[in-house]
Structure formats: structure tokens, C-alpha cells
Amino acid sequence: MIRTIFFDYDGVLTTDKSGSLTTCRYLSEASGIALSTINAAFHPYAGDLFTGRARHADIWSGVCESLNSDLDIGLLFEAFESTPLNGAMVSLARTLQAHHSIGIITDNPIDRMDHLRVHQDLDSLFSPIVASAEVGSSKQGQEIFLSAMSRASVAPEECIFIDNSEPNVAMARTLGMHAIFHDDGKNDIDALAKELRRLGARADS
């Protein structure tokens, strides 16, 4: 019996492939600095941000120094808020919530997810919400999945994980979880719902 369905956040619940894309694109447009330059300024800090060793406030002066521009950190939170939700996917999650618990497993900085949990009211639909920065481990390893299943009180065979990265899907399957690859380019919600039903989820309203 399927008890819990876990969604990835960026590229599944959102229409941007990654949170880094969303954040850096907004900062580029707001500042007039080239996107490639913004990306390069953040790159050295990505590992620390995504595993919780640093928050954006800790690295902001270094980013600004690399950009040779004293950007207001408020722009960063505006960038978080620019994250485009995938409306059709959220609707599917709401349908599933009638029969299953719904959670999130995501590789993300903790301050970004904390901000979005409030801004997008994520906690009203998703529980648990497990971010790599909170666990100290990305979806390249098992720990984040084990933490999510423990918090949801489910066994691997009782849950489904949806992600737009094939390696992440493969990692979940090594633990015995059901897992579905979602092609974010196609964003075929009907096909996803069909696969969920095949695996035993109740994906009909």
C-alpha cells in the first residue's frame, strides 16, 4: 500500500529546472550583471549552501566581491520569491493528498526553503519537507531519503518519489522506494498520474 508520495521541488513542483537557475536569473535581470558572471560568483559556495555548512548571509560578501558590486541582499529574497510554481503539479499533489501523505525531498539551501515554505505556504500541503542543507547530505547519497522516510514513518515500499533527475531516481530505487522520473521539459502531468496509479497511488479526484 502506498502511504506517502515525495516530490522533488525544483523541476517538479516548479517550472524551472533548478533553484540555482531561478535565483541567478533574477539577480542577473535585477542587477544588469551577466548571468554567466552571477553563476560564476555563486559556484564556489554551492557545496556549502546545499549541505548546510553555510547560509547565503555567510557568503554574500564574497559573492559581491566577486561581482565587484555591492548588491542588496534583499534582492536574494526577491529571487527566491520569483520561483515559478508548476500549477498542474501542485494540483496533482492536492488530489493525492486526499488519500496519501505528501512530502518534499529536495537538494536546497535551508534559508531558501525556509523562505519559500512561508511565501508559498508549502506546509499546508507538504509534510515532511526535507532539504539537503538540513540533513547535510544531497540526493547523491542515501541519508536524505532515509531521513524523509523516518520522518514520514513509512517503509521504502510504502512510498513513491518523483524527481526530474535520473540519478536521484536511481538512488531512491536502491533503497527499495518506488520512484518515477519526471521529464521537466515535457511536464506531462497526465503521464505522471498514470504511472502513479500503476504503482498503487490514488491519483484521481
Rank of each mutant, 00 (worst) to 15 (best):
R3L: 01
T4C: 10
I5T: 08
F7W: 13
Y9F: 15
V12R: 11
L13A: 10
T14R: 11
T23L: 12
T23I: 14
C24I: 00
L27D: 02
I33Y: 01
I38R: 03
N39L: 12
A40G: 08
P44Q: 09
G47C: 03
D48R: 14
L49V: 02
G52R: 02
S61D: 14
G62A: 06
L76R: 05
A79Y: 11
E81K: 14
T83Y: 09
T83E: 10
A88L: 02
V90N: 01
V90W: 03
L92M: 08
R94Q: 14
H99F: 12
H100Q: 06
S101D: 10
I102V: 11
P109K: 00
P109V: 00
I110H: 03
R117W: 10
H119V: 13
Q120Y: 14
D123G: 14
L125T: 11
P128C: 06
V130G: 06
V135S: 05
S137H: 10
S138T: 15
G141Y: 12
F145W: 12
P156D: 01
V169T: 06
A172R: 09
A172I: 09
T174E: 15
T174V: 12
N187I: 02
I189T: 10
E195I: 09
R198M: 10
G200C: 06
R202W: 01
A203S: 10
S205Q: 04
